[in-house]
C-alpha cells in the first residue's frame, strides 16, 4: 500500500468513505507532505469514487491546502486592515529581508513558505501571523528575527 493509501485508509476508518470525508483526507495528506500532488488527488478520487476534478476543485478552494510544494513552515501573515494599521508592512519587509523571498514563494532550502492571509481573529494583538498552526502576535521586527531564528534552528536540528 502506498503512503497516500495508508493516510486515506486511516482517515476513512474514522470518517467513512463518503464524499464528506474528502476534506479531512486532503487535510491529512497536506499535513504530512505540505503538498497535494496530481497523483495524490487521483488516488483520493479513486478511493472515494468521485471525480478527480472535484477533488481538485476542493483542494484549490481552501487557503490551507496547496497544490504546490510548500516549505516545512508556512508563514501566513495577516493582511487585514487592523494588522495593517498595527504595522504589518514593516513586518512583511523584515520577513522578506530575512527569508529573501516574496509572498507566495518558498525558500530554496525548503524550510519557509511566505504568504499573506485574511483575518486571523487576533486584531487586538496585531500584527499577527501563523506559522503552521501556531499563532504569533504583537509582532515587531525584533520578535520576528527571534521567531524565524527559532524555527530555522528547529529545522536544522
Amino acid at each position: 500500500m502506498s503512503p497516500i493509501q495508508e493516510i486515506i485508509q486511516k482517515v476513512s476508518a474514522s470518517h467513512g468513505t463518503e464524499r464528506e470525508s474528502l476534506l479531512p483526507i486532503l487535510q491529512a495528506i497536506y499535513a504530512k507532505n505540505h503538498i497535494l500532488t496530481e497523483e495524490d488527488m487521483i488516488e483520493v478520487a479513486r478511493e472515494l469514487d468521485i471525480s478527480a476534478a472535484h477533488v481538485y476543485g476542493t483542494a484549490t478552494f481552501y487557503s490551507f491546502l496547496e497544490t504546490q510544494q510548500s516549505g516545512k513552515y508556512i508563514i501566513r501573515l495577516c493582511r487585514t486592515i487592523t494588522c495593517m494599521m498595527h504595522g504589518k508592512n514593516i513586518i512583511l519587509q523584515e520577513l522578506e529581508r530575512l527569508l529573501k523571498i516574496k509572498p507566495g514563494q518558498t525558500t530554496p532550502d525548503g524550510i519557509f513558505t511566505l504568504t499573506e492571509t485574511n483575518c486571523l481573529g487576533q486584531c487586538h494583538k496585531g500584527p499577527a501571523m501563523l506559522v503552521n498552526d501556531t499563532p504569533h502576535t504583537d509582532l515587531t521586527p525584533e520578535s520576528i528575527r527571534e521567531i524565524i531564528d527559532k524555527y530555522r534552528r528547529e529545522a536544522l536540528q
Binding site: I50, A53, G57, F61
Partner: peptide, 24 residues
C-alpha cells in the same frame, strides 16, 4: 455531474479567481 455523472468540469479556486476547470 447530473446528466452525465462524469465530473470532468469543476469549480476551482474562489472569489475573483474562481473559474471552471478540468482536473489540474
Amino acid at each position: 455531474d447530473q446528466l452525465q455523472n462524469i465530473g470532468a468540469l469543476t469549480v476551482s479556486k474562489k472569489g475573483s479567481e474562481m473559474k471552471i476547470s478540468t482536473f489540474f
